[in-house]
Amino acid sequence: MGKKLGYALGIIALLTVIAANYLIFIWVPAEKVMGIVQKIFYFHVAAAWVGFLAFFIVFFSSIRYLLSFNDKWDWLSAASAEIGFVFMTIVLLTGSIWGRAFWGHWWTWDPRLTTSLILWFIYAAYLLLRSGITQQERKARYSAVLGIIGFIDVPIVWFSVRWWRTVHPNLMVEGGKMAISTKMTITLSLSVIAFTLLYAFLLPRVVKLYQLDNRIQKTKDIIRNL
């Protein structure tokens, strides 16, 4: 990606984030029943969307890597996993804070919550696996395999937890009622767009980091073999 385009994307992302924050904190009215706590929902949903999107990118570029063995795809999946891990952490934290305020407890084993938690664990395992392997090419292959295997697991987790907790009321549907107001829909859409732009801005940067790191490793190898 060109340098100018990157800067432009960064500025657009920054402006959108500011606009989304304005909408969330000043423009949109707070939900009647839940009050001010409900506003965390805009961050929560947007982060969740990016977390799942990032994982899909990991899956996609892992497949592309195994088909082409081009390092570019490995960097992309690693970068996406790193950013996705951060966003999933945000999802779990904001969700817990909201749950504490609204349900009265930090955690329930609702399908959505549990699937997010498992996804977070899979991300963590992916990053741990990467950090342990020193040989570049092997690291890329192994983590690509794990990226594919991990992604397949997510729908199965979803179904299993849903069956496990059928008695549990689907709290998110109740929560969904609050999106009725158009102002809220607009705010939510903008914050989703803002988070996606942030992800799109960060991704090439982290990819670049991996690329530079790879170049350093290669240079080191050359020096060692002199």
């Binding site: 498992i118 664990f121 899979i122 963590a124 395992a125 741990l128 696996l129 342990g132 392997i133 092997r138 192994y142 395999v145 794990l146 295997i149 991990g150 697991d153 199965i156 987790v157 179904f159 299993s160 937890v161 496990w164």
Partner: peptide, 29 residues
């Protein structure tokens, strides 16, 4: 299958960390 991924790290602790999250639906069932 996953043990092949983890043995090359020389750390046996990595297998459960990688394996258990994936196994959760199976164990639950």
């Amino acid at each position: 299958f996953l043990s092949v991924l983890t043995i090359n790290n020389n750390s046996e602790i990595l297998l459960p960390i990688v394996l258990f999250p994936l196994l959760i639906p199976l164990i639950l069932a």
